[in-house]
């Protein structure tokens, strides 16, 4: 089993293909991998509670869940307050992203 760091910089409003990363995250977690989905740039536009047809809702729950992090600067840049975040989304930052990147054996995927 591997550690996956999936970094999603895109959103489902501009791109028709963004659900790919969410379903991939779920599939990888379903196989027993440790999966972090790190949302950054417009990728954080799915984090507001109330987003319609939100791909975050498709992520598996429970033991094989995907850890969802959102870049604090990208949130602040877009006026997304921490109190308005969907459940399960945790605020992070690029310092933490670097910590995840330098873990030996982590498979980092930018999209």
């Amino acid at each position: 089993m591997s550690n996956y760091l999936l970094i999603e910089s895109r959103d489902p409003f501009e791109y028709g293909d963004t659900r790919y990363m969410y379903s991939l995250a779920g599939d990888l977690a379903g196989k027993g991998n440790e999966v972090t989905l790190f949302l950054i740039q417009n990728g954080v536009l799915t984090t507001r509670s109330g987003v319609k047809d939100n791909p975050l809702d498709s992520l598996p729950k429970g033991a094989r869940s995907v850890k969802v992090l959102a870049d604090e600067f990208s949130l602040r840049e877009r006026g997304i307050s921490q109190s308005s975040l969907s459940g399960g989304v945790k605020v992070s930052n690029v310092d933490n992203l670097v910590d995840l990147l330098v873990q030996e054996g982590t498979k980092a995927v930018w999209h």
Binding site: S9, N93, V94, D95, L97, V98, D99, L101
Partner: peptide, 19 residues
């Protein structure tokens, strides 16, 4: 693209952490 400044932010963070 915002990616440029994001990448430079990541590099800056890595440098600050001594990498």
């Amino acid at each position: 693209a915002e990616t440029t400044t994001t990448a430079l932010r990541i590099i800056d963070a890595a440098v600050r952490k001594g990498h």
